[in-house]
Design a protein around this nucleic acid. Structure first.
Lengths: 201, 201
DNA sequence: ATTAACTTGCACACTAGCGTGCACTTTCGG
DNA sequence: CCGAAAGTGCACGCTAGTGTGCAAGTTAAT
């Protein structure tokens, strides 16, 4: 299990993970064979890179979590509404990983693992919500953990169920999050106009 | 296959469908055995009532669709915001069927069938949205079909992912729908106060 | 009480997926 | 060019689930 020396092996390993991310995003129970074919390899070859189907899933989760948590760390807007909007917008850039994580989070078998890996992101959302409620920027009719959960599920829902190819998809995601957070649609639009970077590609 | 004469057979058939609705709501791929045990019968007995696992699923879908479409027919509020809120609130009463339908709608294998069965409900939502946008009651930054879809997915998300046992769950569902529809949280609260029946048990 | 309807338990064949062993071929790196 | 690393294809045993046949038991309706 020492560091692989051959270039093609390294590329193939990455290809498997990329294929797995895509396949799992489409169906959390995607078979080894499906993943292998998508990566242009035989089913048998995957067992040279990973012990197990679970090992692949674990790496997919870890890769996604690393990206998400990095994004969450970058957010530093003073206004919680802008922070939430930026979070949604930035996560959109990682759509493939978000879809995989979202699909896995709905799958009982890997629920524990995904929720552990996404804990930092969740903590961040709760913190933003708390701050926003205290500042009167977000709705206060729901307790912070409930609202945070609802926002997370909303993001998951939009990513999983709205055509990611659509040019307005990102804007829909941001608007949905802001709507759940308590803003009226005109307030949400005004916020987007003040921060054009949120809708930028 | 003539009309069954025995009382227990009729009861058992209903019990199977009820068990299937619950089991499928929890996991759309619930096995025949899981459903049978939940209904207090042996796996073998189910094949006396239904040809097939698909036959069970089809009946679950049909039963849910019948209830949903009946509810959609009853809604006649002039204000589209109230109509949407009432729709969410009424559907909550059929939580078990909604959960099953929501789970099946996420399952590729039965997607076509569920979407066909829910077509009347969907048409109704689109009609309400169109009317609401024309009247300036709902957001106009999204095309009616997109907003209708988003509202439907929001309802699905809340039913599937929020603890249905919670006493405030119904109110959360209604608020989420209104938030996506474009209302601010204070507007949504005001609407709920004017129509206390929307939150009633 | 009798009978037909219903249920049960078991065995069976079938499918899909997983993980492994092994012989063989391809291909990268020195 | 050579050798080791990587990939292929196939067979195998395993699990979990489906749908069927059949003999035997149980129970509702007349």
């Amino acid at each position: 299990m020492s560091t692989p020396t051959r270039r093609d092996a390294v590329e193939n390993r990455a290809g498997i993970l990329s294929a797995a991310t895509a396949a799992i995003g489409h169906d959390p129970r995607a078979s080894i064979d499906t993943i292998a074919r998508r990566a242009g390899l035989s089913r048998r070859a995957l067992y040279g890179h990973f012990d197990d189907r679970n090992a692949i899933v674990r790496e997919v989760i870890a890769a996604g979590a690393a990206r998400f948590n990095a994004i969450a760390d970058e957010i530093d807007d003073a206004d919680s509404r802008v922070a939430l909007a930026r979070l949604a917008s930035e996560l959109w850039r990682e759509a493939a990983h978000v879809q995989a994580a979202a699909a896995l989070a709905l799958d009982d078998a890997h629920l524990a693992e995904t929720s552990a890996a996404l804990a930092p992101l969740r903590r961040r959302i709760v913190a933003i919500v708390r701050r926003g409620q205290d500042a009167g920027e977000l709705r206060t009719d729901l307790p912070a953990p409930t609202l945070a959960r609802l926002l997370e599920e909303t993001g998951r829902m939009v990513v999983a169920r709205v055509d990611a190819g659509s040019s307005t998809a990102r804007s829909i995601a941001v608007c949905a999050v802001l709507g759940i957070a308590g803003l009226s649609w005109t307030e949400a639009r005004a916020l987007l106009e003040q921060h054009p970077d949120l809708e930028a590609q």
